[in-house]
Amino acid sequence: MAARPGPPVLEFRGVTKAFGELEVLHGIDLEVAEHEAVAVIGASGSGKSTLLRCVDLLEEIDDGDIFLDGEVITDPSVDPVAVRRRLGLVFQAYNLFGHLTVLQNVLLGMVKAHGGDRDEAEPTARALLARLGLGGREDDHPDLLSGGQQQRVALARAFAARPRAMLLDEVTSALDPELVGEVLGAVRDLRDEGVTMLLATHEMSFAREVADRICFLHEGRILEVGPPEQVLEHPRRPETQRFLRRLLEAGRA
């Protein structure tokens, strides 16, 4: 591995977030280096989604700081729109724009948020869709597509403007089992290109394969971080062991 070149792409320092009385994140410290993929695992309600939404400034954190390329982004003086334009967030439920075609879904941000010329952006968008196996579906509306196809459109939409980091929030959890593979393939593809990513997932086999490091989140705290083989095969904390055992029993590991 090359020498570390500069600051991590993403860095969390003491990040704390509560919804009313309920503390969802409690003093999170984490770094994601350039070209690195970090998978956050943990039970439902452990705070995985909130963590990603906080990075994209869709939620405001209560304490601590998050840095993007060494700059603090969680300061109230920072323009959230400018930050979001440097990140790509993919949602569990795809959240595609139902009134737009597949192509328009991908183009909207490229043109309206990034000020691209529509005619110049279109070939790029088409190429990206083709690469994700969506060639020929450009003019369809999302409701005509399968869940797996919709999620790949969502990936294309988030990646279209080449963000500094991709944030993937349980991108396969809403899918039928036979459709999971095609979305994972698309993520793997981006990963192989060296895209920096932070992903929340339930798919242990996927986390093992794609992530450089796995981070176990439990009740808003990071209990364990390390390479997949260490966290998944030889978990140190009893909470991690229990979580993995339960997944194994449910046939998800």
Partner: peptide, 8 residues
């Protein structure tokens, strides 16, 4: 959320 996430 999705609209904001793409930078609008």
């Amino acid at each position: 959320d999705a609209a904001l996430a793409i930078g609008l």
